[in-house]
Each structure stands twice: as C-alpha cells, then as structure tokens.
C-alpha cells in the first residue's frame, strides 16, 4: 500500500501547488531552532559551572596542602594533634574516621539493607507501610545536628556503660543511625527496580520468598544498593556537627592509640572533619596548610571508597549479564 500510494500521500497534505522543487528546498532549509540552541548552551553552562567550582576547590586545597605533603607526608599522617603546626599530624583523626566508617559499614549497611528488603519484599502494601516509608524519607532530611543531640542523649548519656560516654563507639553509632534512612531509601529504590519477572520466575519454580530475595532480588539490586551505601558512607565520614555534640575532641587529644587498638574504642576520640573544623578556626597561617592537607586526605578517602564501589558495581553488573 505504501509503495503504490506514497507519492500521492506525500503531496496531498502539503498546500496545493507544492512542487517537488519546493519540497526539496524546504527539506534542505536550515531554520535555526533558537530555543533549542539557548537551552543547550544553558545546560552546558550549568555543567561547566559546577565542574569549575569543583575544580577551583580542588586546586585550592591541593595547592594549599601540597607543601605539607611534600615536606613531611610521613609525620603528618602519623603525628598527633599538637600546638605547633610543624609537628601536628592526623593519626588520631584518621583512626576516628576509620572506626566511624567501620561502624557505618557493619551497622547501617546490614540494618538498612535488611529494612529495605523487608519494606519492599515482605511488608504488605498498606497504609502503615506507606506511612513508614514517608517517615523514613523525612528522617533522611532531618539535619545532622539533630542526630547529634539524639546520639548525645542515647549513646553518650543513657548507654554510657556500653559506649564509654564520649567515645568513638558513641560517634560511630550516631553516624550509623544518621545514614540509616539514606541506606534504606537507596536500597529500597534499587530493590524496587528489580524486574518482577525475576521474582515470578523464582516463585514459579517453587522458591520461597527468602530464596527469591537471596538468589534473585539482592544480586540484581546489588549495584544500586552499593552505590547508595557508599554515598551514605561518604556522608558519614564527612559529618562534623553530630560528632561535636557527641563529644569528639576539638583541639588536642592526649592519647594516641594504634589504628586497630580495640581496647581504646571507649576512649575520647576525634575525627578528620572535626580536626579540619578545629584547624580552620586557628589564627596561625601554618595551620591553614594543614587544614588543606587534611581536606585532601578526607577527599582521597571518599574517592577511594567511591572507586571501590564502582569496581564492585561493575563486577556485579557483569555478573548480572
């Protein structure tokens, strides 16, 4: 039908008297799509602006801290907090940040993923579930300082016997709770994105809900879950406000236990964002270089975590086929 009638069909809708020549002219005509061009430039500008700001920031901290890394990388990484800028290091802060990361990974990740799995796979889709869902979203939007107050009340005061009061345990628990809603939301999104056909296929073969969750849903959702959890981890590692409330030491910290010294987990602690806050507030110019260097270190840690997540995600995704 198309073959035979095509010439007629094309010429009839155009105004009468349109010659093939006119059609050709119109086809070749270059009418500028002004709105399209403007939008395109605006979008490009937004992207360029964001990248520029990031680049300036990066340039600023790297050049500011470069001298510290160049002259005394070793002593900066292994040194403790001192009054003299030339001797100060971030060993204690690194330790605090490391342990906070451990608490988040060991507590918030499994709890959050399990909660998301329950919400998406097990819970009935009723008003209560939706209410809970909305409130988890709200919790993710609660300012971090509020979690600091919560952590102070619960982990520092009420559970001081367990946490030792103003300890890295209390800080780690607080930040784990802080990112828990974020972990739940992102994991739930990833689980929701799993095609239903996979579930049906599993159930149709006589798998139980848990078997379907374990062998189909979680592996398929793993890349998405991973992305969300690592973002949460980065958020936790960068938080300063709640840690200040929980009692991280802003200033000098007497003790300097080993990185993996479990016995001192209930002692006073500090963390990288805290040290950055502290150093940034000091008047001496020497500390400004230290601040920049500490920022570079925390950025490096976050980037490393992201890189690890990307590698793992690619591996999961290639498995997914």
């Amino acid at each position: 039908m198309i073959g035979g009638d095509a010439p007629v069909a094309i010429t009839t809708p155009l105004s009468a008297g349109t010659s093939p020549e006119a059609v050709r002219r119109r086809l070749r005509g270059r009418r500028v799509d002004l709105a399209g061009v403007v939008l395109r430039v605006a979008l490009l500008f937004s992207l360029a602006f964001s990248l520029l700001v990031l680049a300036v920031l990066l340039y600023d901290v790297v050049t500011g801290g470069w001298e510290v890394f160049a002259s005394r990388f070793q002593s900066f990484m292994s040194g403790t907090l001192r009054f003299s800028a030339g001797e100060s290091g971030i060993a204690q802060a690194l330790r605090g940040t490391l342990w906070i990361g451990v608490f988040v990974v060991l507590l918030a990740f499994p709890l959050g993923i399990a909660a998301a799995l329950y919400l998406e796979e097990y819970a009935a889709d009723n008003r209560l579930t939706r209410f809970i869902d909305v409130n988890i979203r709200n919790l993710a939007g609660v300012p971090s300082i509020v979690y600091g107050i919560l952590g102070f009340t619960i982990f520092v005061k009420s559970l001081s016997g367990l946490t030792g009061g103003r300890s890295v345990i209390a800080g780690g628990l607080t930040l784990a709770i802080l990112v828990l809603p974020l972990v739940i939301i992102t994991s739930a999104e990833a689980i929701r994105a799993v095609p239903d056909e996979l579930r049906l296929a599993g159930f149709g073969l006589g798998a139980t809900r848990w078997e379907v969750s374990r062998t189909q849903v979680l592996p398929y959702a793993a890349p998405g879950i991973l992305t969300g959890t690592v973002l949460s981890l980065a958020r936790a590692l960068g938080e300063a406000a709640p840690l200040i409330l929980v009692g991280a030491v802003v200033g000098r910290l007497g003790s300097n236990p080993g990185l993996l010294d479990l016995g001192s987990l209930d002692q006073r602690f500090t963390a990288l964002p805290i040290v950055i806050t502290y150093w940034a507030g000091l008047p001496q110019a020497d500390f400004r270089a230290l601040t920049a260097a500490a920022i570079v270190v925390i950025l490096a840690i976050v980037l490393l975590a992201n890189a690890a997540a990307i590698i793992l995600r690619n591996r999961f995704e290639s498995k997914r086929g």
Partner: peptide, 10 residues
C-alpha cells in the same frame, strides 16, 4: 509455570 515474556535469570 512458563510466562508470557521469556524471563531467564541473568
């Protein structure tokens, strides 16, 4: 059960 759309596991 066999479904409308082929649904092999990945």
């Amino acid at each position: 059960m066999v479904f409308q759309k082929p649904n092999p596991f990945p």
